[in-house]
Design a protein around this nucleic acid. Structure first.
Lengths: 196, 196, 196, 196
DNA sequence: GATGAATGAGTTTTCATTCAT
DNA sequence: AATGAATGAAAACTCATTCAT
């Protein structure tokens, strides 16, 4: 949402809806225009091209996720506490912006050739937040040294993201808190029972 | 590969290549035909439509993953050992079929409306293997009871899948074995250091 | 330049530049406005339409050519002297207004259906000046009677115009005066050597 | 007319008609398709793009003109006779292919930026034939030495071309032979009466 | 069985023009 | 008088699919 033009908001929201329902290719500018209640030309007047509209959407979303995460992390002292709120925030974000996350995963994570630069920026932007936390944790001795940082970061993102999507999109039988707890337990202490 | 027609194999492989490079929409039947070294009509003769070709590809792939996993799992006795080989096999599969996995993630996971039935089948097909293992493990007392089964299954799939994709597609600086070990450690014992 | 509005001049000049660079169709009102440093609406306020702007440009140009030619012609007494200065003036005009002449040739001479009335007026306006001179010359016995007047007029316009364009747009290796002399020699005494 | 596909000919001819009536920009592929009696896709199947279709038209035309001229020139012995038949052939060509010539002049001569390479090739291709003749004539002493070759060549092309166009497109009151004679007389002996 | 020329519905994009301010 | 955001008709081009050979 770069500037305050009132025309951009409805377009932005219609675009989010259509892109997440249809994917980038199947989404048509006609439909976005119709849902936004503006003429097709207005979209081009404001965004230049379908691709630009899409990218501005993606950028905006990731910015929101990063901000939300950074804000929460700053509040916590210990690394584990920071990682815990990262899980909480990412899960909530995936819930709040289901559609956006679907788009993110399917278009941007999937077809790196087409969104090359944007994809790379998004990935490294968000993942490096996680990576830094894990790295700091390893140095402080609260995170296992034997974990390879980058892999652990991707894994954390993946476990939260995929679990969230599967839950939001397909199964809803068990409560939200169960997911959150399961993910935290899994990440911090693993699946194995501690032998006593 | 339904039957043994020699025409189908080159088409199948060309399709895999093109779909994974371009995604379903951007891939053209013309290009698949050219790479397969057959005429465009031949594709329609053998597969009926672009969509059918794509779906047969997806089905075949998931069948291979399921078979590989089931075979390895059958060899192991204990649940943890079975889960360990599941991680190994899935990681290897993502490495062997990077392109296919990219397609899987971006097209099938992303746009459930369009591939609805197929997507659902794939997800529940593969995920239910994991779920069963986890469930059995909980009953046997080797997997933590407090984990919600479906979430843990999705999380396992997601951590392995996303870590694998990030590694294969973007960063390759650290050895394959590090990933494998990191993922196993993470899943079984978590990231936290054990206090002594 | 119909009236003295200061807004019209910059638009007029920007339009000349853009039309001659891009041609009528490829030229956009947006670009003309930008180069003129006015808002798009201002162009419509002053000229009504893109077409009107273009035509006013064309009219103005041809008026200038006609005036220049008529003024010089009036200074000379003999028909040959008048024709000689017509060649000189037309050549200079094509040099001074290269861009305009390009537009004239490509848009107005080419597509008579679209500018019908204007094209006809321009052609007959300027050509009839030449025709009259040739006709008078024939009557006076200084121009060959066997020449068909209209053809000779067109030919004179064409030889000067095309030679000028080719020189201004493509080759510049030989001096301006050579062209002028060559054209005069050619028109008055022809290419053949006089047998002695 | 590269190959013998029967579909290309009607498209080629419809394109010639539409381009010469409307000019390159105003001509629509839809209209060409309709007039050719084929589907729009067929045009793209055969020519790749509107631009390519146009250029293939232009190339083909200039090839025909060059061939016609070269053939006639080869038949004559003396330079003046060769130049005379050049005039004859060019005039006839402009008559036979009025529409093509209109396109040639208005699009290719006019907007050199857009057809750059093609325009340059056409111009130098045909003009260099004329230039060589004039150069040879100067060396042999049958063409006036004081004429600058390139200018004389452009002038000859221009006088024949513009006179032809003006006649074919606007005035038809006087017979074809008058034009031919007028042009020959003008080029070889000039407009001035020989003083006796 | 295989082919590839032909099709036409569907998409993105452009841009002259309008009109409320 | 001047502006520029908004419009929507029009155009180039793509490509899955068909079908005569």
């Amino acid at each position: 949402m770069d500037r305050g033009q009132q025309r951009r908001l409805p377009i932005f929201e219609a675009a989010m809806a259509v892109f997440s329902e249809k994917g980038f290719e199947k989404a048509t500018v006609d439909e976005i225009a119709e849902r936004a209640g503006v003429a097709k030309g207005t979209i081009y007047y404001n965004y230049g091209s379908k691709r630009e509209l899409f990218l501005s959407l993606v950028e905006e979303g990731i910015k929101r996720l990063e901000n939300a995460v950074k804000k929460e992390i700053a509040r916590r002292k210990s690394i584990p506490a920071k990682l815990e709120s990262l899980i909480t925030v990412q899960l909530r974000f995936f819930d709040d912006y289901k559609n956006y996350c679907k788009v993110l995963l399917s278009e941007v994570w999937g077809q790196e050739t087409r969104w090359e630069e944007t994809a790379r920026r998004i990935r490294s932007g968000y993942l490096s937040i996680i990576r830094e936390l894990i790295d700091d944790g390893r140095k402080e001795g609260v995170i296992k040294k034997e974990l390879e940082t980058a892999t652990a970061a991707s894994a954390l993102f993946g476990m939260v993201g995929i679990a969230a999507l599967d839950w939001f999109l397909f199964e809803k039988e068990y409560p939200y808190d169960d997911i959150l707890n399961t993910l935290k337990t899994l990440f911090f202490t693993g699946a194995n029972c501690v032998k006593t």
